[in-house]
């Protein structure tokens, strides 16, 4: 057995190495020359940050960072880089940054660096000047019985501070509407996303048939378990979105038409249910206040609806506008 001080030293060493790797990955993501490399380092950075949250005991945040911060944002950024590459030619980004090395571009880069450094310093100062208190931990623990769930994070997210989560789900929807509004008019009856070329008997099609049962089970489990253990609508929704995307990439089902009423109903179900429960709560006492007697079923209902909406919204964000041929004015042009 290792004695206490030795394992303390090992833990501190691990944390120091982890912190150095987070800083290193962040630095590479900012300084690396090509965009694709920057995205790769951003994903690596997200995985390290998830590990850091794990070390801090914040399992819920670690799950969210791994699923959304590293995974989904990484996929979105890779898609963005691919579209940029098609727009400026494959060598475009690299040549562009060299040709105009000492121009407006570098001035704006320096300005961005200065602003980022100022924000970092301000945040660091704010963090260090915080008084050494436990925050609202005691208050949450004292009222956990009235929340309907036993995972304090879910209690805060859906019950005590439901306002923030409601707005988050609406922000997600607004992002999708923003993306849709950038489609060209010609594309508006077409299915979103690039055309997939998976062979019906290929490995991707087999993978697409093999994984979804596990993914569905795991996604639903993460939502269900969120009431007592780390998990919840955002993490579970991301897993379900990944399953759906995989099935579409494997050619097992076509992407949905964004004009269909059914997909739009799924998209707004989460915010709508959340808002309705909140408004009914306003008549019963307070807006978004959940009566303790019905809190658990209400939270599960909100979480279930939110999960579907989040999964559909994230998947449609990743799919993006229709790509491929039938584009008279050139790829990637915003109208």
């Amino acid at each position: 057995m290792i004695d206490g001080t030795a394992s303390d030293i090992a833990a501190t060493g691990f944390d120091l190495v982890l912190a150095a790797m987070i800083l290193g990955a962040g630095l590479f993501a900012v300084t690396v020359r090509d965009l694709f490399g920057a995205v790769v380092f951003f994903i690596v950075y997200g995985v390290f940050v998830a590990l850091a949250w794990l070390r801090l005991g914040a399992l819920d945040v670690a799950l969210t960072e791994a699923a959304l911060g590293a995974g989904l944002t990484g996929v979105l950024l890779i898609g963005a880089v691919a579209r940029l590459g098609r727009r400026t030619g494959t060598q475009g980004t690299d040549a562009l940054s060299r040709r105009s090395a000492f121009s407006v571009r570098s001035v704006s880069q320096i300005a961005t660096m200065l602003v980022s450094a100022a924000v970092s310093v301000a945040l660091g100062w704010a963090f260090l000047s915080l008084s050494d208190s436990d925050g609202l931990r005691a208050g949450v623990a004292a009222n956990l019985d009235a929340s309907g769930v036993s995972n304090p994070v879910t209690a805060v997210l859906i019950n005590f501070r439901g306002w923030d989560t409601l707005l988050e789900s609406i922000v997600l929807l607004a992002a999708l509407i923003g993306l849709w509004s950038l489609w060209r008019d010609d594309d508006w009856g077409r299915r979103p996303g690039l055309r997939q070329h998976a062979r019906a008997d290929g490995v991707l099609a087999m993978f697409g048939r093999l994984l979804p049962p596990f993914g569905l089970l795991f996604g639903v489990y993460m939502v269900w378990v969120g009431s007592s253990l780390p998990g919840g609508a955002f993490q579970g929704g991301t897993v379900l979105a990944a399953v759906w995307l995989l099935m579409m990439m494997a050619g097992l089902m076509p992407p949905p038409m964004v004009t269909s009423a059914r997909i739009r109903a799924v998209l707004i179900a989460g915010p709508l249910v959340f808002l309705s429960v909140g408004i009914i709560g306003a008549f019963a006492g307070g807006f978004l206040g959940l009566p303790p007697a019905y809190a658990k079923p209400l939270i599960l209902m909100i979480e279930a609806a939110l999960t579907l909406s989040i999964a559909a919204t994230l998947a449609l964000l990743v799919l993006g506008p229709p790509g491929g041929p039938a584009m008279p004015s050139g790829p990637g042009d915003a109208p």
């Binding site: 490995v203 991707l204 087999m206 993978f207 093999l210 994984l211 596990f214």
Partner: peptide, 13 residues
């Protein structure tokens, strides 16, 4: 098992 399946599929692609 999941990592094996995912890595094998990705490698093929």
């Amino acid at each position: 098992a999941m990592a094996l399946i995912a890595a094998g599929t990705t490698a093929q692609l």
